[in-house]
Design a protein around this nucleic acid. Structure first.
Lengths: 218, 218
DNA sequence: GTCTATAAAGTGATAGAC
DNA sequence: GTCTATCACTTTATAGAC
């Protein structure tokens, strides 16, 4: 019989089918815009099964949300930053890992930005405990100056610039494609190039900010 | 009688009260997350009046959406760019105007990003005709090179970097505040400073990208 | 585990009195 | 113009048969 373990080509449990359908839709459209019926249809199962496996739409969403946050934060909190690399090397590796992840998950940035808008503190604590990232970790690893600044910049500016240069093109992908007429393949090619470019730009920004204090560093 | 034109302190028409309540809620939370009842309550009026003045929730949303887009695009399409300024001057003025606008309307970026995700082309054409911005205008004014690049960069990279450095801190405001522990006042102070910093950073980025082709421009 | 049928609550919109 | 009451429909969630 063809009833063994691989019926057609992939054997996915019903629970996972629902979860994957939910991940896709929730990440793309957010909690309110998705109906449980959409998820059931996308998963190819009956509506009642959703409540059988996950107690409610909200609980299913919470699971997806936590996993999405973890995916987004694990790179920042990763051991990478703790190894023996220089600051520039840390930035180079972080950018490469991050942009690769973003090419695979282009909807993640907007999802995160939207979720953080609503419940920053409530979510944040949950995430902190789940991922083990104390929010100061990132800074310790990236080396602040004696006055708490990074290369002469406000920490907020440094983080905003670094994360923004990585994340913003993905959050604004439709706008940028509309403005520039770039198609999906070209977009991904440009993002690949940005893996090398963003670290260069970040260094240029840091040098322009450091300029005022120490005339020559080498 | 106290029934003249200024009863308590401000005389706002019911229609405008509804519109302002709708603008606030729609811009903050998006179409799906807002109930018509929320708008009515926020406006301090009855639910039925919403449908009396605006035929439906959707029509009310469309009005807000168009106004939000116009606010976001008018600076890019403004006459500023067409005056006799140099490229650097154009960037300086654009950044200053933009960040001032964003400080006044911090929810605008996320709203725009979310709306553009769904219906880029449909919306885009509507906007184009409403605002009179052909999407190429911005590039003409900002001076591309002979090969279509801007200071040696892909146009998409130039736009993403420029807009991203202005917009991203506002889109990610809660995250950045959580990570850095910065309060609202400090955040706004840093954004004020960014009006001067972003142009400097953009120039640093352009120089690092131009480096490969022309050794010295001055 | 999976389905159909339906309950229970929410939500946009309108009718009609004032 | 503004209100109350209510309709019509959607949506989440569950009960119960198989």
């Amino acid at each position: 019989m063809k009833e063994t373990k691989q019926e057609q080509e992939k054997e996915i449990s019903t629970e996972d089918k629902i979860k994957e359908a939910a991940r896709k839709l929730f990440t793309q459209k957010g909690f309110d815009a998705v109906r449980t019926r959409d998820i059931a249809e996308e998963a190819g199962i009956n509506l009642a099964l959703l409540n059988y496996y996950f107690r409610s739409k909200q609980k299913l969403f919470d699971i997806i949300m936590l996993e999405n946050f973890r995916k987004f934060l694990q790179l920042i909190s990763g051991k990478l930053l703790a190894e023996g690399f220089t600051r520039d090397e840390k930035i180079e590796k972080l950018v490469e890992l991050y942009i690769d992840m973003l090419i695979e998950n282009p909807d993640l940035p907007l999802f995160i930005l939207n979720e953080m808008r609503g419940n920053p503190s409530k979510l944040a604590m949950e995430i902190d405990s789940q991922t083990g990232v104390l929010r100061s970790n990132f800074f310790k690893e990236i080396q602040g100056d004696a006055d708490g600044k990074i290369a002469g910049m406000e920490p907020l500016n440094f983080v905003a610039n670094l994360i923004g240069l990585m994340v913003y093109p993905f959050a604004a992908k439709p706008i940028l494609q509309w403005v520039t007429g770039v198609n999906d393949d070209e977009f991904n090619r440009i993002m690949q190039e940005r893996k090398k470019l963003v670290p260069v730009w970040i260094k240029a920004i840091m040098q322009s900010s450091e300029g005022g204090r120490e005339a020559a560093s080498r």
